[in-house]
């Protein structure tokens, strides 16, 4: 992959470390001279000193056929303009940026940035997933939240517990992808029995997720 990393100090260095290998081609753009020089010294990759939200700087860096443009400066508006220029003027396939204001995640996506990451939002997502351990439900979203993979911990008092899958009228809106039963992963078939402490993973659309969770966690009648 051909990757441009624009702006940032620690974030830029970390990304370089993670992506620098024989299959990736990296180009760095940084508008802090000391930082740019440091990166150039430490890594054998091209470093351009300049503001990545300026067209002539991107021109100098020759990013036309790059696959990914990552903008990690600490100013949301600078990341926004750099990403849009990379995409609209230079045709970079995918642009990604970080934002300090979590409100900007949805806004920037609406305005044409492919991926927008807010550390505050990630922090909250992580707290939410920690607390949902109590209810034993974890969710992972794909394709901009159009598909979700949900994990539900099975308890002995659930109606579906101790039943084989063919006996369960599982909602059509989702499919059970796998069951994790320590220490192994089971790809289920009709004969598979749901047992307490299983972790059941299903795929669905976000709209149907809650109804399916409700189905799985329905308590058996006394």
């Amino acid at each position: 992959m051909k990757i441009v990393v624009a702006g940032g100090t620690n974030a830029a260095e970390y990304i370089i470390k993670k992506f620098q290998n024989s299959t990736n081609e990296l180009v760095i753009i940084n508008n802090d001279r000391a930082n740019a020089e440091q990166i150039a010294r430490d890594n054998r990759i091209p470093v351009f000193y300049g503001d990545a939200s300026r067209k002539y700087v991107l021109e100098a860096a020759h990013i036309e056929d790059f696959d990914v443009f990552i903008s990690v400066s600490n100013k949301d508006e600078d990341n926004y303009v750099a990403c849009l220029l990379a995409k609209k003027v230079f045709g970079v396939k995918k642009c990604i940026c970080i934002v300090t204001n979590p409100n900007n995640v949805e806004i920037f996506k609406d305005l044409g940035i492919d991926s927008v990451i807010s550390s505050t939002q990630l922090l909250i997502a992580s707290i939410t997933s920690e607390t949902s351990l109590e209810t034993l439900v974890k969710t992972m979203a794909f394709e901009d939240n159009k598909i979700v993979l949900t994990e539900v911990g099975i308890k002995a008092n659930f109606e579906i517990c101790h039943k084989r899958l063919f006996e369960i009228q599982f909602p059509k809106e989702g499919t059970i992808s796998c069951i994790y039963r320590k220490p192994r992963v089971i790809i289920p078939n009709g004969q598979t029995m749901v047992l307490p402490k299983d972790k059941l993973f299903f795929v669905s659309s976000p709209a149907d997720e809650q109804a399916i969770i409700n189905f799985i966690t329905r308590k058996a009648k006394e």
Partner: peptide, 28 residues
């Protein structure tokens, strides 16, 4: 530029004027 884009694409304000230092900034 960011505010102008929001003003046009999200709020569709009828008249939008933007002050720019760099002529190049007009691209977007």
């Amino acid at each position: 530029i960011l505010i102008a884009h929001m003003a046009r694409k999200i709020f569709d304000v009828p008249e939008i004027y933007v002050r720019l230092d760099e002529p190049e900034s007009e691209t977007l």
